[in-house]
């Protein structure tokens, strides 16, 4: 699956890191790193993280999205 975090919006609340620790990680005090292509089996957790993000910074590509070319 494909995701991204709008890091202009992200305010390092780190909710996502608790809900999907394999995908979102806090490094140092305030550095959020994320995996842009998590395994499909993570979808549910990633969606929960996206819903929990207070600033809605996490974007998740919907299932069956147009991925042409």
């Amino acid at each position: 699956m494909r995701i991204l975090v709008d890091l202009n919006k992200c305010q390092l609340y780190a909710q996502c890191c608790f809900l999907a620790p394999d995908v979102f990680k806090l490094e140092g005090e305030e550095v959020l790193v994320y995996h842009p292509a998590p395994d499909e089996t993570m979808r549910e957790r990633v969606l929960r993280a996206a819903a929990a993000c207070p600033v809605l910074a996490i974007v998740v590509e919907p299932v069956g999205a147009d991925s042409s070319p």
């Binding site: 494909r2 995701i3 991204l4 790193v33 994320y34 995996h35 842009p36 292509a37 974007v59 998740v60 590509e61 999205a65 147009d66 991925s67 042409s68 070319p69």
Partner: peptide, 25 residues
């Protein structure tokens, strides 16, 4: 960042698609 550090492979950076484009590439 994530790619140079080795966590993410270069071909894992394709942008999520937010709306169908139905276009010619």
């Amino acid at each position: 960042k994530q790619v140079l550090s080795g966590w993410v492979r270069p071909q894992e950076t394709f942008l999520p698609r937010l709306h169908p484009i139905a276009g010619a590439w």
